[in-house]
Simulated scan of single mutants.
Amino acid sequence: MTALSTASAHAYPGSPGGEVQIDTLTPHPARVWNYWLGGKDNYPCDRHVGDACQEICPNIVTLAQMSRHFMARAIGYLATTAKIGQFLVVGTDLPNGDDPHTIAQRITPAARVVYADTDPLVLTHARALLTSNTHGVCDYLDADLHHPAALVRGAATTLNFGEPVAIVLRNSLDHLPDQDAAHALQVLLGAAAAGSHLAISHLTGHLHPRPMAQLAGLLTQHCGVPWLLRTPTQIAELLDRLNGGLLDRLNGGLPGGLRLVDPGVVSAPLWRPEPSPWPQRQADIWAAVGCKR
């Protein structure tokens, strides 16, 4: 990230340590996604990269919307059908409408939700805007998937991992290589009780490999974090490691494994679709929900 200067930083109040200095010259993934989703929490540098990505991949805005729409459906499923009352959301994103805790607490007013991220702007906005109702709990954690054990310890101050918890990874695995992603999944689900659920969304290059690879390269270059595309098969294999695949040979696997909820690993618009502005057909954003046995 570029060094901060008076001209390139914006101070946000309200953090535990005082004002937070935000670099407004270096694009940030959450702000770029916020721009694609029509939000206002972004800067010219984010819009510049977002527009460049749209030139390469004109449907990236639709993919971002599909990802958010899937997560809304997944959380609705987790709160109703799976009857989960506590959620760990990794990759908080900037508030932009119907956020996970709002959906969960609309169904279960006493739901407890922990958001985890490491970006100061995301966490500052979350603390200011993502407020719980009077019955539930909404907390914010400075942690990410690179240190899953610390993430679990921090979340455990609000969530009871002895009871089922929903672990929601909103395009978070896109930033981790296979070994780190597999380790993070094993640690998170290994700490969770049987009956816990995992929900993920992930960019792919399944339908449009060349422009999606160019898009991932551009975001990696300008945002300072890697963006990794996986094929649908690679996403399925990553989840299958929790059932005693490669991860079993490396680390003993996950006791009980992970049972995928129908329809399994599919393109996000096809996961239990509801009426939406987009055609119910394959797109380069894939998704899955699974239950720990």
Rank of each mutant, 00 (worst) to 15 (best):
R249L: 15
D98W: 06
R272C: 01
L246P: 02
N34Q: 04
A79I: 03
L238M: 05
M66P: 09
T81F: 06
Y140A: 12
G253H: 03
G85L: 08
M212Y: 04
G256S: 00
D51K: 09
G195L: 09
L254M: 12
R106T: 12
P263M: 05
G256T: 02
D46W: 07
A268C: 11
G154A: 03
E163L: 15
A7C: 05
L207V: 09
T131R: 15
G252L: 09
Q186V: 00
N251C: 14
A182T: 11
Y35D: 08
V61C: 14
P148Y: 05
S8I: 03
A30M: 06
L247C: 07
N251M: 10
V137L: 15
V187H: 09
L189H: 02
A150K: 12
A116G: 01
L228F: 06
A11D: 13
N133Y: 00
F70S: 08
M212S: 09
T6R: 15
M212H: 09
D117L: 15
V90S: 14
Y115C: 11
H175F: 10
K292H: 08
S267I: 00
L260F: 11
P109G: 06
H101G: 02
P95N: 03
G136R: 04
G38D: 07
V266I: 04
A181T: 04
N160P: 05
D248M: 02
D144M: 05
T26H: 11
R210K: 14
G253I: 01
V265D: 05
V114L: 10
L270N: 07
K40D: 13
V61M: 13
L159D: 06
V261Y: 13
F70W: 12
W227D: 10
L207Y: 13
H222E: 15
E19M: 13
T131D: 11
L218M: 13
Y43D: 06
L145Y: 10
D178M: 00
S172P: 02
G253F: 04
L121Q: 11
P211L: 12
L37Y: 01
L260W: 13
H135F: 10
W227M: 14
E163K: 13
C223A: 14
T81A: 12
I235E: 08
V168S: 10
K40C: 02
L63K: 14
Q65Y: 03
R127I: 05
T92I: 00
P232K: 04
L141F: 11
A104D: 02
R241Y: 15
S5D: 03
L25T: 13
G91M: 04
V289D: 10
Q214F: 03
V289C: 12
L88T: 03
A74H: 11
Q221T: 05
G97R: 06
V266P: 05
P44V: 07
W278V: 03
T24P: 07
L78C: 12
N251P: 01
C45G: 09
F87V: 05
C45L: 08
D46S: 08
L254W: 09
I200N: 05
G85A: 15
L229R: 12
P95K: 06
L258V: 00
M71T: 04
R281F: 01
P279E: 05
A82F: 04
R153L: 09
V261D: 14
Q21V: 01
T92L: 01
L173D: 06
W286P: 07
D99L: 00
L4H: 08
